[in-house]
């Protein structure tokens, strides 16, 4: 994937982008087949996007009215009550009257926790992986290929297998229920990140690097002043994908966090769901919470859509 190396960040809103020269010059004649194909695609678009609209519609409805207006496509009895319950702006009694749980929920705290965890993981993982990738791509040392092969073998271990033993380790380190404990296992590297960046570093012309070394620059300097700036595009791509994955992680976070202190949004959402009255859940509150949890990644996606969409391919794997 060496597509799009222009370091323009966030310049592309999702809609205006066209692919230069990628479109084959096929005749766009109308046919029944094409109409059928477009109908199918429109259906796919609808199914992809409808749940997002439905979250918003439900979140803006008042919960007690949802029962009577379940077939209404617009918000029923428009109200910000769902969001107010999420952000703890309603008193316990108000929330219970509106069909909510009545417990105070601390959404800003969870939002903060999610940001801290995703940031720690992204910054650490991308930076340390880049350093290792540079050592594998450019430095000369004994056993380099062997160590790299060993790293690659790590790709084969499914993440899920290391969860239990890692939990035992985090517990022994006394880091259960801390943000650091959630971040630590993926903060240093993933085999994929190292592999992905190494591939890219290998493609950078050696001449520029040699010239800098001739001028007396050290390799450390070359790495920070030359390699990193020249690789901003793939590094950004990797960082965004890592951030999204870290933000969305549920299973590991669920194991490690017990209290509000370290609860991230995904886990909080699960707790919020289990607290809602079992008979007649607070759907407008739940959907408001769901939307708030999803929103940051949707915004990030809007900013970087072109980069993310174009980065998905076999670069890293093949």
């Amino acid at each position: 994937m060496t597509t799009d190396t222009t370091p323009k960040i966030g310049a592309a809103p999702p809609v205006v982008v066209t692919e230069p020269s990628a479109t084959p010059s096929e005749p766009h004649r109308f046919s029944a087949g094409r109409a059928l194909a477009w109908t199918f695609m429109i259906l796919v678009i609808l199914v992809s996007l409808f749940p997002f609209y439905w979250m918003l519609r439900t979140a803006l409805s008042s919960n007690n009215a949802l029962y009577a207006g379940s077939d209404n496509l617009l918000p029923v009895q428009t109200s910000a009550g769902g969001f107010e319950r999420v952000f703890g702006l309603q008193t316990g009694q108000e929330a219970i009257d509106a069909g909510g749980a009545g417990q105070a929920i601390n959404f800003w705290r969870y939002l903060f926790n999610s940001v801290v965890v995703a940031t720690l993981i992204t910054v650490g993982q991308v930076f340390f992986s880049a350093m290792a990738a540079y050592a594998f791509a450019r430095l000369q040392w004994k056993h380099r290929e062997k160590v790299f092969a060993f790293f690659l073998a790590g790709l084969m271990i499914p993440a899920i297998f290391t969860l239990l033993p890692n939990f035992v380790l985090i517990k022994q380190l006394g880091l259960v229920d801390t943000l650091l404990g959630i971040s630590l296992p993926t903060m240093f590297m993933t085999p994929f990140a190292v592999f992905f960046l190494r591939q890219f570093f290998l493609g950078i012309s050696r001449e520029v690097e040699e010239a800098a070394l001739m001028d007396g620059a050290s390799k450390v300097r070359v790495f920070f002043r030359l390699i990193i700036p020249m690789s901003m595009a793939p590094i950004t791509t990797l960082a965004i994908l890592t951030y999204i994955a870290a933000w969305n992680e549920y299973f590991w976070a669920l194991m490690v966090s017990y209290t509000d202190k370290s609860r991230v949004l995904t886990v909080a959402l699960g707790v919020f769901k289990s607290q809602t009255p079992q008979t007649g859940p607070d759907w407008s509150g739940l959907m408001a919470a769901t939307l708030v949890a999803a929103l940051p990644m949707l915004l990030l996606f809007m900013l970087f859509a072109k980069r993310i969409v174009n980065s998905i391919g076999f670069s890293g794997i093949k």
Binding site: S48, L49, N248, G270, A293, L298, I308, I312
Partner: peptide, 14 residues
């Protein structure tokens, strides 16, 4: 492609 990818951006929990 952006629209088709959108659901992937939210967590399994969402």
């Amino acid at each position: 492609r952006g629209i088709v990818l959108t659901p992937f951006l939210v967590s399994n929990v969402v």
